[in-house]
C-alpha cells in the first residue's frame, strides 16, 4: 500500500527523518528524480535540528555558532564517537545538497545509511 505523506509535520528531527524514509522507500512519481536532493536536505535539517535541541537544553550560546563549531562542541558534550559520526554525516549530506556537476549523486542505499547515522546522532543528542 502506498504510504502517503502526512499532511502535518512537526519538524522534529524524528519526523523529518521519517519523511526521508518515506521518500527513499516509495517510488512516488511526484518525486521522480528530485528525491535524492530532497532527502539530503531534510536529513541535514534533521541533524541540525537535533543539535539545536541539545544546545537549547545544555548550552544555548552554542546554537548560534557555525555548524563546524557546533560539531566540534558535540565531542565534549556527548562523546567523540558521536561528534565524529555527526561531522562525517553532516559533511556527506551537505555534499549531496550542493551542486556538483561532475559527480554521481548518492544512491538510495547511501542515503539510507546516512539517515540511520543521523538517527543515531539525534538519539544521542536527546539522551545527552
Amino acid at each position: 500500500m502506498q504510504e502517503a505523506f502526512p499532511t502535518e509535520v512537526s519538524g522534529s528531527p524524528d519526523d523529518l527523518l521519517d519523511q526521508v524514509r518515506i521518500l527513499l522507500r516509495f517510488s512516488d512519481p511526484s518525486t521522480a528524480g528530485v528525491w535524492p536532493r530532497a532527502a539530503a536536505l531534510l536529513a541535514r535539517q534533521a541533524l541540525e535540528s537535533g543539535l539545536g535541541e541539545l544546545w537549547q537544553r545544555r548550552a544555548p550560546s552554542v546554537e548560534h555558532c557555525s555548524l563546524r563549531a557546533q560539531l566540534l562542541c558535540l565531542r565534549s558534550y556527548i562523546d567523540s564517537d558521536t561528534g565524529e559520526r555527526a561531522a562525517h554525516t553532516w559533511g556527506v549530506l551537505s555534499r549531496a545538497c550542493h551542486h556538483h556537476p561532475y559527480e554521481l549523486g548518492p544512491t538510495a542505499g547511501e542515503l539510507g545509511s546516512w539517515v540511520e547515522d543521523t538517527q543515531r546522532v539525534v538519539d544521542a543528542c536527546k539522551d545527552g
Binding site: A4, F5, P6, T7, E8, V9, G11, L16, Q19, D28, S30, T31, V34, R37, A38, L41, L42, Q45, C97, H98, H99
Partner: peptide, 23 residues
C-alpha cells in the same frame, strides 16, 4: 515541481524548495 506536488506536506515543501533554488 515540488511547489505544485500536492502529495508533499507544506512543511516538507518549505524545507526542500529553497535548497533547490540555492543549487
Amino acid at each position: 515541481t515540488l511547489i505544485s506536488t500536492d502529495e508533499l506536506s507544506d512543511d516538507v515543501r518549505r524545507r526542500v524548495v529553497p535548497g533547490f533554488c540555492r543549487s
